[in-house]
């Protein structure tokens, strides 16, 4: 746990995983994201913070083209993953989403068994040669989701029967089962109690060693605890982006300061 942000660690140079340039998002006539430029690093936890309705979740959903499922949503500008435009005509969003996994605000396990919940992704992407292979993938994912010990005896029980915190870790395990390179998390702890939140935060920190993690959060404390980089959004603008420690201790923009000190938001 990083109760005080470790600035040294963030200094070492890392590969850029995502880079966005001049991104605009419209919902019908509403201009939801205004000209956002940002570069997200690999093997880093990046937090998006800001008051509700500021566009942080919308921007997150652009990164794996989840906004495609909303008819009235329109995205302009470039978003590059490993240097490739993900909004290119040739890119299949299905392939993209296998690379960029997502965890949602409310735990949403499928009404299937725990095993089938995890195996769903690997199955549709054809990742397992045989049953034993699939079993192994499921076990690895559940272990990485830090829930293996709790469910290993009841893999055939329905996923909806777990507690809220367990469900959310199941959903994280489900997301990592497809071996993504980036993990997007949309307020993953907002529906959880403090103990479950602590477990999930611990998990996020472990995931950082293998994945690039982007987390949207309402809680500034959480952003400070789990992330190395922080982006502050306000009214659709990316106001400030930088080292988490710097944002929270010495913000450049007056709006960031007002938000962090609780005057707006």
């Amino acid at each position: 746990m990083y109760d005080t942000p470790n600035t040294e660690r963030a200094v070492d140079q890392k590969d850029i995983k995502f880079s966005a340039k001049g991104v605009q998002v419209y919902y019908g006539d509403t201009h939801a994201i205004k000209d956002v430029d940002v570069a997200l690093e690999d093997k880093t936890v990046t937090a998006f913070i800001g008051p509700s309705g500021c566009g942080k979740s919308t921007f997150l959903r652009c990164l794996n083209r989840m906004n495609d499922t909303i008819d009235i949503c329109r995205v302009e500008g470039d978003i590059l993953l490993d240097g490739e435009d993900i909004y290119d005509k040739k890119v299949d969003p299905v392939q993209l989403r296998a690379k960029v996994g997502m965890v949602f605000q409310k735990p949403n396990p499928f009404p299937k068994s725990i095993y089938d919940n995890i195996a769903y992704g690997p199955r549709i992407h054809g990742m397992a040669k045989n049953k034993a292979d699939l079993d192994e993938i499921v076990e690895r994912a559940l272990r990485r989701g830090a829930i293996w010990d709790e469910v290993k005896d009841r893999l055939q029980a329905p996923g909806t029967g777990l507690s809220g915190g367990q469900q959310q870790r199941l959903c994280i395990a489900r997301a990592v089962a497809t071996e993504p390179e980036v993990l997007l998390m949309d307020e993953p702890c907002s529906a959880l109690d403090p103990i479950a939140t602590a477990q999930v935060e611990e998990l996020i920190d472990e995931l950082r060693t293998q994945y690039s993690v982007v987390i949207v959060t309402h809680s500034m404390q959480q952003a400070a605890r789990v992330s190395q980089k922080t982006a502050f959004f306000h009214l659709g603008n990316l106001v400030e982006f930088g080292e988490t420690g710097k944002i929270f201790t010495n913000p450049e923009d007056p709006r960031t300061e007002s938000y962090i000190t609780g005057r707006i938001g």
Binding site: K90, Q95, L96, A98, K99, H125, G126, M127, K129
Partner: peptide, 25 residues
């Protein structure tokens, strides 16, 4: 499964080449 083994949908392959598994799907 064969396609999956040869890197279906993940790994360091380019996003712009659609692999056989995705085509089938």
């Amino acid at each position: 499964t064969l396609n999956g083994a040869s890197g279906g949908g993940h790994g360091r392959s380019s996003l712009k080449t659609i692999d056989a598994n995705t085509k089938r799907r």
